[in-house]
């Protein structure tokens, strides 16, 4: 009887693992396919039945990509933008999050609710006016054209605010009694304590900026300012029927962000798992 029950448990465990493995397999399938197709010679992907393992391994597609576009430059653009947007937005949003979470001031609640409800407005509405503003400032084709509009995020402020609310006021009071200024408290206490949520946001901002397509396409009119996705979309437009080449392009676009994520995922996951701090 007991043995039977143990067997049942093991069986359930195996079935459970199989199910999850299958699900993760399906999730990863597009990536695997992308990778394998990208090392096929032109034309091999358009055969039936579909083949996963390349009959002939070749790096031609990658060679072609590196020959044709200034990948280094576009990579650098993407990197500079992603890093600066992340850095600046973390600072500005955490300041605001602290302001909302730990102070009471006139009009705070309505202001906060107003901010929250405006998250519903689709960003596309603002595209033309923002474009015109940037143009007046002479910021088209500069990194600032992407950094400035990306500096503040209501969602980030909201998230930081929620997180900071979980930090007991008693901690801050103690510091105040020791004579710390508000800025010192922010810098010395709030920022270190908020590290998990900040790392989370940092990763998201980084990825969002890295992957963004439409805005850099419009703001960066000069080719040397193109980000990686824009440069590759440009290439795709010319080679829409060359599946293998496009896959290689996709691998190049995705790879850096995957690597960043793999390295940071420890912090990131810590961050999001700590997201609900117990008081």
């Amino acid at each position: 009887m007991k043995l039977n029950q143990k067997m049942r448990k093991i069986f359930i465990a195996i079935a459970f693992h199989l199910l999850i493995a299958l699900l993760s397999g399906i999730t990863l399938l597009p990536f695997i396919w992308m990778l394998s197709t990208s090392v096929m010679p032109t034309g091999e992907a358009s055969t039936f039945p579909p083949t996963l393992v390349p009959k002939k391994f070749t790096l031609d597609q990658y060679r072609f990509l590196f020959d044709r576009i200034n990948l280094g430059r576009h990579f650098l653009n993407s990197l500079i933008l992603a890093i600066s947007v992340t850095g600046v937005s973390l600072l500005i949003n955490s300041l605001a999050g602290y302001g909302f979470a730990k102070f009471s001031f006139k009009g705070k609640r309505p202001l906060f609710i107003f901010l929250l409800s405006s998250m519903i407005i689709p960003a596309q509405v603002t595209m033309l006016p923002v474009f015109l503003i940037l143009n007046k400032m002479g910021l088209l084709n500069t990194y600032f054209g992407i950094i400035l509009p990306g500096m503040a995020s209501i969602f980030a402020i909201f998230l930081i605010n929620q997180y900071l609310k979980g930090i007991p006021d008693s901690l801050l009071e103690a510091a105040k009694i020791d004579g710390a200024s508000h800025f010192t408290i922010y810098w010395r206490i709030i920022l270190p304590l908020a590290k998990p949520v900040l790392v989370t946001l940092a990763l998201f901002t980084f990825m969002g900026t890295w992957n963004d397509f439409l805005w850099p396409l419009i703001v960066m009119t000069k080719e040397e300012m193109y980000t990686l996705p824009v440069a590759l979309a440009n290439l795709f437009g010319e080679h829409a029927q060359d599946v293998e080449l496009m896959m290689a392009g996709s691998v190049i676009t995705i790879l850096p962000i995957m690597i960043v994520f793999m390295f940071l995922q420890k912090y990131y996951i810590q961050g999001i798992l700590l997201g609900g701090v117990k008081e």
Binding site: N135, L140, L217, T221, A233, N234, G237
Partner: peptide, 15 residues
């Protein structure tokens, strides 16, 4: 890219 050419030209004109 052709797919975004129209948008891009008009935005460039506006700017």
């Amino acid at each position: 890219p052709w797919s975004a050419a129209h948008e891009k030209l008009l935005t460039a004109f506006a700017g």
